[in-house]
Simulated scan of single mutants.
Amino acid sequence: MTRTYWAAGAAVVLAVLFAVGATVATASGGSDSGEASRAPGLYSPDAGFARDMAVHHQQAVEMSFIVRDRTQDEPVRGLAYDIANTQANQRGMLLGWLDMWGLPKVLADEPPMSWMQAAEGGGEHAGHAGHGAAKPGALMPGMATKEDLDRLAAANGRDAEVLYLQLMTDHHKGGVAMAQGCAVQCRTPAERSLAQGMVEAQQSELTLMADMLGKRGAAPRG
Rank of each mutant, 00 (worst) to 15 (best):
A7L: 08
A153W: 06
G197L: 02
A36R: 08
P141M: 05
Q58L: 14
G30N: 04
P112R: 11
T71M: 10
N85G: 06
T86R: 03
D109R: 05
W101T: 03
W6D: 15
M209W: 02
G78A: 14
F18K: 13
G30W: 04
V16W: 00
H171M: 08
H172S: 08
D109T: 05
R221A: 14
Q59Y: 09
R70M: 03
Q196A: 14
D73M: 07
E62D: 15
G41M: 05
V20P: 03
H171W: 00
D150A: 15
R216L: 15
E74N: 12
G175A: 10
G181F: 06
R3C: 10
S33V: 06
P220A: 03
E110F: 03
N156S: 15
M143D: 01
S37V: 08
V76P: 01
R51E: 09
R3Q: 14
D170W: 02
V16F: 02
A8N: 05
G142C: 01
S33Q: 06
G222D: 14
A19M: 11
A36C: 13
A153V: 08
G121E: 05
H171K: 05
T71P: 04
A88L: 00
S28C: 02
Q203T: 12
Q117L: 15
P111D: 12
A210P: 04
R216A: 11
W115T: 04
G48S: 08
M63R: 03
G142I: 00
D211L: 14
V67K: 00
K173I: 11
A84S: 05
A201V: 09
V61Y: 02
E191D: 15
R91Q: 12
P45Q: 11
H56M: 03
M143R: 00
R51N: 12
A88Q: 04
G121P: 05
G214A: 15
A11H: 09
M1W: 09
R221L: 11
M143V: 01
A27I: 04
T169G: 07
D159V: 10
F49W: 12
M168E: 01
M93P: 04
G96S: 07
V55E: 12
G197I: 07
W101G: 01
R151V: 10
A154Q: 15
G21H: 09
M140Y: 03
G137S: 02
H128W: 10
L14G: 11
G34A: 13
S44Y: 04
E191Q: 15
W101H: 00
Q90C: 04
T2P: 05
A8Q: 01
A126P: 01
M113L: 14
Y5W: 12
A183C: 07
L79V: 10
Q202N: 09
